Amino acid sequence: MTKRTPIRFIINPTSGPKSRVDVPACIQKHLDLAFFEHEIVFTEYAGHATQLAQEAAAAACKIVVAVGGDGTVNEVAQGLLYTDTALGILPKGSGNGLARHLEVPMKIEGALQVLNQGHIRTIDSGHINKHPFFTTAGIGFDAYISSVFAGNKKRGLQTYLELVLKEVLTYKHQTVKASINGNELDTDCYVMAFANAAQYGNNAYVAPMADIQDGLLDVCLVRQMDLIKALHLSYSMLTRQLANEDSAEYFQTKHVQVKTEEPMLFHADGEFKGKSTSFEVHVEPQSLKVVTPL
């Protein structure tokens, strides 16, 4: 009898909007059990998914599947960096940025069929102050929203959008010094986003041209914000277009340094990480194996 391929599902039971989907039952029904020998485990605390993923990789598990939102995907992916174990995703969050970029179906049944096909490729990862990210990281406004959202009891896209609309015109830009491709910028900064993938999540494209396999980060800099810029940027993000040069500037680079006089907030894959006056951001090419559609 042919030995089945080991696969571990790491489920975050608190991730995303409430759903009636019975994930373990769905796995049992739609996973190719003739090919896979599967195990299901549940996270119990922040950071647990990384530990569970590391354990699976050390045991030569072929695929580890993150069942949850962007935070869960980030934790699992961290545990699989630089290993031969591939990340799979069953999207169960409100944004699902990496899953959407990789074109993984949003319905669990479809995402399980992607796992059954078993197509694996290797992608880049980004790092901001030693925190790995796989879609986007940022300083300024998007990090501020992440910090407020993290403390909000209500989750989901609607809550996130309400926070953005409430804060977008009252948040104040700061002065930063940035080094990008050897060029020194002394600039205002409302938000500086570092994109490994094209979107934040929910098909909101902060860097439409970003390629997750090109060994580069796409940097989007918005110096200041007003109502006209806010409307234009929103339209550009939702229609997958580059904003005009009056609203945003774009750069491609392997490494970014940013220094600020006042501490600025920062996030990695939408998860608030704290504040700092110094940021080191770089890309690690071809550092994570992922399961994607053919």
Score class of each variant (00 low, 15 high):
28 Q>R: 15
32 D>R: 01
77 A>Q: 05
42 F>T: 11
88 G>V: 03
46 A>T: 14
61 C>R: 09
33 L>S: 13
27 I>M: 12
10 I>Q: 05
66 A>P: 02
57 A>M: 01
80 L>G: 04
46 A>Q: 14
25 A>P: 08
41 V>C: 14
71 G>P: 03
19 S>F: 02
23 V>P: 06
61 C>G: 09
52 L>P: 04
84 D>V: 03
29 K>L: 10
54 Q>S: 14
71 G>A: 08
14 T>R: 11
22 D>I: 01
88 G>H: 04
56 A>F: 08
35 F>M: 07
54 Q>G: 09
61 C>N: 10
39 E>N: 14
59 A>S: 13
41 V>I: 14
68 G>W: 04
41 V>L: 13
69 G>I: 02
71 G>R: 03
39 E>T: 15
78 Q>W: 07
33 L>G: 10
45 Y>E: 14
81 L>R: 13
29 K>H: 13
54 Q>M: 15
77 A>D: 05
37 E>M: 12
84 D>A: 13
19 S>Q: 02
87 L>S: 05
29 K>W: 09
56 A>R: 08
28 Q>P: 07
11 I>M: 01
77 A>V: 00
50 T>L: 12
53 A>R: 06
26 C>S: 12
78 Q>M: 11
79 G>I: 02
33 L>C: 10
46 A>I: 12
51 Q>G: 13
82 Y>C: 10
58 A>M: 11
33 L>D: 10
66 A>W: 05
88 G>R: 01
64 V>Q: 03
68 G>D: 06
83 T>S: 10
19 S>W: 02
11 I>S: 00
70 D>C: 07
52 L>K: 11
63 I>F: 03
71 G>Q: 08
43 T>I: 09
67 V>A: 07
18 K>F: 01
67 V>R: 05
84 D>N: 15
16 G>N: 02
24 P>W: 09
71 G>D: 06
66 A>V: 02
59 A>H: 11
12 N>S: 00
14 T>C: 08
80 L>E: 07
72 T>S: 07
28 Q>H: 13
22 D>Q: 07
82 Y>N: 15
83 T>N: 06
23 V>Q: 06
33 L>N: 12
87 L>N: 07
62 K>C: 00
16 G>W: 02
76 V>P: 04
48 H>A: 11
47 G>F: 05
35 F>D: 08
41 V>Y: 14
39 E>Q: 15
50 T>V: 12
31 L>F: 08
33 L>H: 12
77 A>S: 08
62 K>H: 04
83 T>V: 00
75 E>D: 10
68 G>V: 03
85 T>A: 00
62 K>L: 00
67 V>T: 06
80 L>H: 04
42 F>H: 15
18 K>G: 06
50 T>D: 12
46 A>E: 14
31 L>C: 08
50 T>Q: 15
17 P>F: 01
27 I>L: 10
26 C>N: 09
67 V>L: 05
59 A>M: 10
33 L>M: 12
53 A>Y: 01
40 I>L: 12
67 V>Y: 04
34 A>Y: 07
42 F>K: 14
88 G>A: 05
43 T>M: 11
